[in-house]
Design a protein around this nucleic acid. Structure first.
Lengths: 378, 378
DNA sequence: TCGAATTACTGAATCGATTGAGTAACGCTG
DNA sequence: CAGCGTTACTCAATCGATTCAGTAATTCGA
């Protein structure tokens, strides 16, 4: 307090600001000092009581007075002021290339959200439309709001090179990989998922299994093919290159590819597809050929797209992409880093579980020879 | 400044904090005072220059020095400090009941995002899983972070009663309505969309048009039926109640309902469906009946679900839900309120445009009589 | 050449919560 | 009853940018 009486006194409670004509009524916010005054204590005490971090020495009676005053006034701590003081925002930033236009984004964001909420953190989402400039600005904004950590999310599995600006805080790549072994990322275990699907077919008795791959050989495509081949190899089935056909990742692509497979001299008894969308096309080709699923041909997909897989006829056996789990893992990883529980990068491949529905059965011609172990194995 | 030399001096630049073993290197943040020192001016000047709101009186030379220093040091204004001072967060909160599990959420969020970004605002998204308690907490968190305004979003059109806490700041309901005429909301113009679809069928020459509605009579269902009936009435077609069948909003529901319509003594020549998912089932029923689309039966859907409508065979003519436009409208409405350009509530029904694909053609038996005006009209 | 106006800045209060340092009052021990 | 340790608080600095209220220096008109 200075010599002259004129001391700081800005906290005088300006009138509830204006009477707006239409009921928005932004009432003046209650400050901690208001609660302090009402309870007859200092703001320090209020802070101590409300954050209940003082196991220290506030008697129950005082605590009760503070809580009561706080409740009565409808006090809510001003997060902005708090954040400024404690130098954190309790927020994790999520930068994604495309929020809309993919049904998977929701699941990823949902998982991340859950994990963040459980830890009392917020998730701040910005999407960049694949625009490098927007991206830089977004990252800047995030840092300006003091995000504790950042998630760099993409909407399908590929190899990315995140911008330098990211590295100012702990960060992780979600649903893509980088090439630097010092970076952390989480991706679906594509190979494992495809392996499980192929194995499911093999266990049903199939030995001639067609595979429809994407004509774009990005990581997801390449790794799924690897899983398929590994399963064949383990079962002692010689890989026949003629059984792999590539096409566009669309129903029409799947349809054309499946048609080719069916026209082979020795057609497959089962067809595995890169995605559910391609499987949708395969269904059509099979129907056109006068064959039935799974009686004549078994089919498996990949992605477990909720708008497709359960609704095809018969419902499609497919592999689930673990978007929610990945979103959750990303946040949990960052929390661990923030707590100092981790001292190096982590790379995670998240399991893709097989979802068994009704599109797989033993092959017709081998139905007898392979009885004993089939269906519902996994 | 006090008598004894010991003055505030917290701003001394603590060492770049610690050397972490693993490259996270959170370098000390550059403050405005650092820039001021480097440029040889006061923080006031820096602030004035950087916010360039002083057309006032800073000579170009000084401005240049400030910009240069700022760039050289990599200065970025601390949003938290700024927000505390200016008493706003430049953030709009979006509370939604279900972010995941619906392919529409993305579009809505995307539209809102875009509009917010254009105005230099952030969007803070929280999802509540339809849990009233989580919802209250989320709203509290939002207010605690001083959001400028709030969006209460739901994932399909219904009647909601938003919690009282919402009303502390400007707010709007997105994709649902309330019953209070003082509230603002934006919903799809369901009736208009259905009307357009029915009209499209009528213009192709159909006069006996079946309609598959949802067995749950929520607003979307009721209003679409209204649109259908209005189009019939306008065209002077007597409404035949036997042509409306209700079932579950799933492919199987659509299939069963369509089958019923086809078994009528005088079956319809076209079938309009409550959703694309039901249309998907209708396609199957029509195929089972040995009929073709659109040769024997025309079909229209509703929703324009990206994972379904374009991929059916033939591609489905349907009505687009304006999720992105609604998200955008919600934010723009709030911005207008914040700028004081609006003095009362607004209720908006957003147009649902018809998306013409290939599932509609003139009815076979009337192909001659109605030639002249058909297809591609809208 | 004086005073007013303009230009080019700066000092310090301010937003609201947190927290390190401190103090008054009390009980207890020797 | 001096002195120490608790208990129960309070003071005021602090986070970093914004902005009101100045001030010193210069220009300009009369």
């Amino acid at each position: 307090m200075t010599q002259d009486g004129k001391v700081t006194q800005g906290n005088e409670a300006p009138e509830a600001l204006s009477i707006e004509p239409w009921p928005i009524q932004r009432r003046r916010r209650v400050r901690m000092s208001d609660v302090a005054a009402a309870a007859g204590v200092s703001t320090t005490t209020v802070s101590l009581v409300l954050s209940s971090k003082a196991g220290s020495s506030i008697p129950a009676a005082t605590q009760a007075r503070v809580f009561e005053a706080s409740r009565a006034l409808g006090y809510r701590t001003n997060t902005i002021a708090r954040n400024l003081r404690v130098q954190t925002s309790d927020t994790i930033g999520l930068i994604s290339d495309v929020i809309a236009s993919t049904p998977f984004a929701g699941a990823m964001i949902h998982g991340a959200h859950q994990a963040a909420a459980e830890a009392g953190k917020l998730l701040m989402i910005v999407n960049t439309e694949q625009n490098r400039e927007v991206e830089a600005k977004a990252i800047d904004t995030m840092h300006a709001s003091q995000v504790d950590a950042l998630i760099y999310a993409t909407m399908y599995h590929r190899i990315v090179e995140p911008p330098e600006e990211l590295r100012e805080a702990p960060w992780v790549v979600l649903d893509s990989r980088t090439e630097d072994p010092d970076d952390s990322w989480v991706v679906p275990d594509e190979a494992g998922g495809a392996y499980a699907a192929t194995r499911h077919l093999i266990e049903a008795g199939h030995r001639r299994i067609g595979y429809i791959r994407d004509a774009n050989h990005h990581p997801a495509d390449v790794e799924r093919v690897e899983g398929y081949q590994r399963a064949l190899a383990e079962a002692g089935i010689v890989f026949d290159p003629e059984l792999i056909v590539a096409d566009r990742n669309q129903p029409i692509g799947g349809q054309e590819a499946a048609a080719k497979l069916l026209q082979l001299e020795r057609p497959p008894t089962a067809i595995q597809c890169f995605t559910d969308r391609m499987a949708m096309g395969a269904y059509r080709a099979i129907a056109r050929a006068g064959l039935s699923i799974p009686g004549d041909i078994s089919v498996v997909g990949f992605d477990n797209q909720s708008q497709i897989a359960p609704w095809l006829e018969p419902p499609l056996t497919t592999v689930q992409l673990p978007h929610e789990a990945m979103g959750r893992w990303a946040v949990e990883h960052l929390l661990r880093v923030l707590r100092g529980e981790i001292d190096g990068p982590r790379q995670q491949r998240m399991e893709c579980p097989l979802v068994v529905r009704e599109s797989v059965a033993p092959p017709r011609d081998k139905a007898t020879q392979s009885s004993g172990h089939m269906r519902g194995t996994s």
